[in-house]
Write a protein that binds this DNA or RNA. Structure first.
Lengths: 196, 196
DNA sequence: CTCCAATTAGAGTGAGTGTTCTAGAATGAT
DNA sequence: ATCATTCTAGAACACTCACTCTAATTGGAG
């Protein structure tokens, strides 16, 4: 019932990802994405009420995919080993998904999205953040026996901020994260988690 | 010989820094900066041939100031202690210069400057990068006894990428880098530098 | 004072942006 | 065949941006 689509949500999001990975968030214009697809601009607005909503959807898709895998590894087995494995999994995810990694690791949300989340996805964003927070607390409890603020800071530093900081330079230069990091980062993380 | 200026380079750069620190690089428009100063847009173009040149000058001013202090600390005394001190100095610089820190730590060059360095400052940029490279090599030689690629990678990771990654979340939320980092980061750096 | 150069002053230009609008093409149900 | 629905198609709109241009102002040198 109705005309068959030539460009669906997936096509549009994929084109937007390509553009952002190749030329940065500034290149993700409606006209640019439509041009890559050979689509008229109107077709993009048929799928997404605004450019913000398009970009937000893309970001959430990628972030959810990453976070799901990350938290799943973080939750398994011995906590010491789980922490190290989660770091390795993050590095490997970046290697398997170089374009998604550029989107997620290189650009903060504020560069892609001025202002607040669009209403349509505010719930998704809040749920995503909530699951991250819960996963971090669960790991902090298992690994450090505490969910105090300093303990949570350590966990976030060791498992999120340091790996991202370390991988950034490689990702920025369109390389895959160096395999040196596979041994250096877990060592640094343990130093932080087990330090005085 | 000629009319006295109401707005000099320093005023303009300061206004640009305020804007970028407060609202991100996207807010550093010529009209915006001029508006903050109460100046006409023409006056900005009297000082800077283009917006790119203005932003590039600002970035180089800040980067040179930071790097000079950083390398000076990194070059002194016992190398093990110098590495730790350089990290602490970086954190302290961010605390003393919150706006400059936002500019330098939060935004990569590519967010501020699309494309290449303007001709007028290409030499300055190259010299800055050269001094950084030289300082890193000197430290790698003293601290690890080698200037091999893996050794340089470790040094850059321990002294640059990790501290920036660690400080980012605080800086992003307009806080001063946590004092936890003063002990956690040197420990992580040593783990990386002294690791197998 | 009379020049002259430096600077302010701000309207104007053209390119690019996100978004809207109207028209038409395709498709399945009746 | 008709019709509502879904989607393409792209011109048009309002706005912002970096940048340019012309004119007016200022202050020192002669």
């Amino acid at each position: 019932m109705g005309r068959q689509p030539r460009f669906d949500e997936g096509d549009i999001l994929k084109a937007a990802l390509h553009r952002i990975a190749a030329q940065g968030p500034g290149a993700a214009t409606i006209a640019g994405i439509a041009g890559d697809l050979g689509a008229p601009t109107g077709s993009l607005y048929h799928r997404f009420r605004s450019k913000d909503l398009l970009v937000a959807t893309l970001w959430l898709d990628v972030a959810e995919e990453f976070q799901e895998g990350f938290l799943s590894v973080l939750g398994g087995g011995d906590p010491v080993e789980a922490g190290r494995s989660a770091i390795l999994w993050s590095l490997d995810w970046c290697r398997r998904n170089p374009e998604r990694a550029r989107l997620l690791m290189l650009h903060r949300r504020s560069e892609l999205l001025e202002g607040e989340w669009p209403d349509e996805v505010a719930g998704r964003a809040a749920a995503l953040a909530g699951r991250a927070e819960a996963g971090m607390r669960r790991f902090a409890k298992r690994r450090l026996g505490s969910v105090s603020k300093p303990a949570l800071r350590r966990v976030r530093l060791a498992l999120v901020d340091l790996p991202i900081g370390a991988a950034r330079s490689d990702i920025e230069e369109r390389r895959v994260p160096s395999h040196d990091l596979d041994s250096l980062l877990p060592a640094a993380a343990d130093a932080i988690l087990d330090g005085p």
